[in-house]
Amino acid sequence: MCDTCGCNITPGNEHLVAAGGHLAHTSSGGESVEVLKGLLDANDHQALHNREHFSRHEVFAVNLMSSPGAGKTALLEATIEALGADMRIAVVEGDLETENDANRIRDKGVPAVQISTGSACHLDAHMVHGALHELDLDGIDVVFIENVGNLVCPASFDLGQHCNVALLSTPEGHDKPAKYPVMFRAADLVLITKSDLLEVLGDFDPDAAESYLRQIANPAPLFNLSARTGDGMTTWLDWIRRGAGEHQ
């Protein structure tokens, strides 16, 4: 949404725009000023800039979001192993502390920039912009942004990615889309990770997970995936190749 064409005026707030006009005075004499500006405008503006930067370099940018321990880094390791020969990948890693995840990615021969957020529970567009200064995008086909493990806060911040991928690991339970609708509504693809555990767990129903996803009106594809056994990896790799092809 922007501030210029009026698209930030919704059925929920239009009555406030209609009443009064741009400036009005209150009974106490204070000056009332209509603003109608998104609180995240500065972030969204930076995100737009980041997206243009990716697109100019013909880079497909993917934001990976999940709870901590859902297998984002393991998925990236398996993805680099499978695609490393025919696609150039770079990774932006977000964590509160440590370079551990970036080092795991670097061990696979792929450039990785670690953003240590300190106490911040999410990445924002400005942090990603800072990381991009340390990343040479020439010749890169895909950038994965591994967000801070958190199913709440990252969903509110556009980073400039082309697609959001949400990971839902089988030990977490199939009702996560109903519990965290803001996150799962934002997903362009949902991966049910650690699918090799489905048999052991016995109580995770992938069809129920899909049903919860549809109930928040999200038509995104979802499928099972195990970075350990390779289940679903072909579908995932095809999705990346298609996305990368669209951004050439």
């Binding site: 930030n8 406030l16 209150t26 009332s32 000023v33 209509e34 603003v35 549809r214 009106a217």
Partner: peptide
Amino acid sequence: DWRTQLISGDELLLQRVILDNT
């Protein structure tokens, strides 16, 4: 049907401020 479009409910909008000591 689940195929719907959100028309309101995800706003985060600064609507108005009242200023003193202008």
